[in-house]
Amino acid sequence: MIYPVVCELAADGVPVAVTCRVLEVSTWGYYEWTSRPASDLAWEQAHLMQAIREVHAASYGTYGHRRVHAELVLGQGVRVSHGRVERLMRHCGLQGVHRRRLRGCTRRDQAATPSTDLVERNFTPAGPDRLYVADVTQHRTSEGWLYLAVVLDCFSRRVVGWSMAEHIRSELVVDALQMAIWNRRPAPGTVHHSDHGSTYTATDTTTRCTQLGIRQSMGRVGSPS
């Protein structure tokens, strides 16, 4: 039945005569169809399509048929199959946003030689300021990517240094380490454990660690463990 399509387009402001001419159906037949009492199935379909539109709109147009179906079934208690939701969304021209899988922000410099792993997964130091673990994370904002470098004292489980920037150059992690030194004043020989990322193997980082009396230690690429 093509008349429900004419009805939906009319609700969106498209003249009935234009739609009927394009779809090659009778205008008289459409108005005769609208004068009939609506069947229970037609009412159910109309309510379901409206519910789908509302869920999709509430997600700011990001939900695809799987998440719309989940919201209807789990969130609103609607009994409907996944296939029917998919068909109705296609019929209404609704689709979700497909996001690309994000890559991690850790990149290894193949020319750099990483430091020896001094920790070997033993993250239980005997006292504070003896073992620091460092990492960098990336966060999407409305103005672009923001990178956060953090230094954690393994004994107290407290963040002792951090730095944020719109780039992921070596000064990002150097600034976080410098804050940790200013805050804690650790004794020479404190271990700074990180992954093999290029920000930690960079000359600026290794030089600053040497100047501060910090011993660098490195685990796997992408993970300081």
Rank of each mutant, 00 (worst) to 15 (best):
87 R>W: 06
87 R>A: 14
87 R>N: 15
90 R>V: 00
91 H>M: 07
91 H>T: 06
91 H>G: 07
91 H>S: 13
92 C>S: 10
92 C>E: 13
92 C>K: 10
92 C>A: 14
93 G>L: 02
94 L>H: 02
94 L>M: 05
95 Q>C: 12
95 Q>I: 03
95 Q>H: 15
96 G>S: 11
96 G>A: 11
98 H>K: 15
98 H>P: 00
98 H>R: 08
100 R>W: 01
100 R>V: 02
101 R>N: 08
101 R>Y: 15
101 R>I: 10
102 L>I: 01
102 L>G: 05
103 R>G: 09
105 C>A: 03
106 T>M: 09
108 R>Q: 12
109 D>F: 04
109 D>L: 09
110 Q>G: 08
110 Q>S: 15
110 Q>A: 08
112 A>F: 01
112 A>D: 07
112 A>R: 04
113 T>C: 02
113 T>W: 04
113 T>V: 14
114 P>E: 02
115 S>C: 03
116 T>N: 06
116 T>L: 05
116 T>E: 15
116 T>C: 04
117 D>F: 05
119 V>I: 08
119 V>R: 00
120 E>D: 11
121 R>D: 10
121 R>I: 11
122 N>V: 06
123 F>W: 03
123 F>H: 02
124 T>K: 00
125 P>N: 01
125 P>G: 03
126 A>M: 09
127 G>Y: 04
127 G>S: 14
129 D>P: 02
129 D>F: 00
130 R>H: 11
130 R>L: 14
130 R>V: 08
